[in-house]
Structure formats: C-alpha cells, structure tokens
Computed example of a mutant assay.
Amino acid sequence: MFAGFARVLSPIDNTSDLSKRLKELAGKQVYVGVPEGSENNRPTVSGDITNAELLYIHTHGVRRKAMRDEMNPKVEAGMKYSKAYQMYLQTHGSPLWHSPPRPVIEPAIQYNKDIIAKQLRKVLEAVLNGQNPDQELHKVGLLGQNVVRDWFTNPSNGWAANAESTVQMKGSDRPLINQGELRKSITYVIKEGE
C-alpha cells in the first residue's frame, strides 16, 4: 500500500503534456557502435572487411576449422542458421587463428552502467521540467561512445593477451589496438520513432 502526501502548487493540470513528452522520449533510442552507412564503417586497412564486421568478429571470436568443417555441409544442404547454432559458435572451443572473443560494447556499457544511468536520469529530469531532452540525450551518446572506446585499454576488460606471434608481427602486446582505427570508429547515433 502506498501512502504519501503531495502539495499542489499549481491549479493547472499538465499531465497530458507530460504524458506526451514522455511518449516522445520513449520513441528515442541512443545506439553506440559502428553505424551502418557511416563513414566510420569504412573498410579496414586490409580492405577486406568493415570496422563493424571486425568489431563483430572480435566480440564473438572466430570459428575453429573443425567447427566450420562440421557445420558447412549442413548449412550448404539447406539447414537454417538458427539461434541455437549461433550460440554454439559463440561458446565453443579455441577460435580459428587463435583469436579469442574480446567483446567491446556490451561489457563496456555494463561496467559503466551507473554513470550512464546518472546521465539518463538527467534526460528524464529535462523532460519532467518541460525542457527539450535532446542535449542530455547527446551527452548519453557521447558518454556511451567514450566508455566503449576506453574499454580497449581498460584492464577490467579481461581480454586474453595477444599471442607472441601477434606481438612480434604488429610490435605491440595491446589486443585490438594496432593503428586505433577500430576504436576511433565507435560512435553514437540517436534514432527517433522506433
């Protein structure tokens, strides 16, 4: 049971206006990553894949050859690539090229959820105060972008170290950082009406 006291400071009922502003806010989404079609999603230095594809590979790892050999005949025979198989691929064994999963976006957001929540609270306060929340939403996006970019060098990311052969090849022991292009490609967008 809820019991409380409230004092009405204005005889004007603004509930419908507040409801409208909250609905408008609910239709806005902040996305952090490498947006499709953006200039940040250009091909990598090798030119074979885009930054978004590279980020996906590093997030989920790469299938071992034995796994590809096991699955490819089934896929070529018409088997649908189900969610169960996707989970299988993301959770089994040593990846091809010894490239372990090094997830970026989700763990960075999760690790920094408290500071992101504080900024999201400011968005809601702006709406409740009758102000346009767009400036605060952009701050949420920028904050998300920055915590994800920082995740590349955060020791809490728990990433596996580079193999010695990789260290010798690129001259660095920093996973996922060679020229910094992937990290710089992380940005944010705000979409409305979804």
Rank of each mutant, 00 (worst) to 15 (best):
E76W: 11
K113A: 14
S172A: 08
R68V: 14
S94D: 13
G78V: 09
V75S: 04
K170S: 09
K74G: 03
A126K: 14
P133I: 07
M67K: 04
T166D: 01
I105N: 07
Q90H: 08
P101S: 14
Y85V: 05
M71Y: 05
P175S: 03
V148Q: 03
Q86H: 01
M169G: 00
K113I: 07
G141I: 07
P103Y: 13
T166F: 03
P175V: 06
S172E: 13
S94L: 14
P101L: 10
K118D: 14
I115Y: 00
A84T: 06
W97P: 00
I116A: 07
K74W: 08
S94I: 14
Q90D: 15
M169W: 07
H60D: 02
A117F: 03
V104D: 02
E70T: 02
Q131F: 05
K139D: 06
L137W: 11
M67Y: 05
G141Y: 10
G141V: 07
P103I: 10
L89V: 00
L142I: 01
V167E: 13
P155I: 02
E125H: 08
K113R: 15
P73H: 05
K65H: 04
V123A: 05
Q86N: 01
L143R: 00
S82V: 02
G171S: 08
D69T: 13
T153E: 12
I109N: 01
A161M: 11
G144T: 09
P95K: 06
A84G: 09
H58E: 09
K65R: 14
Q86I: 03
Q168N: 11
A126L: 04
H98M: 08
V104A: 08
G144S: 09
Q90V: 00
T59N: 14
H138G: 01
M79C: 00
A84W: 02
L142R: 12
A126N: 11
Y56L: 09
N72E: 13
N129E: 13
M79A: 14
I105L: 13
L137M: 15
P155M: 04
T153P: 01
K83Q: 12
Q86V: 04
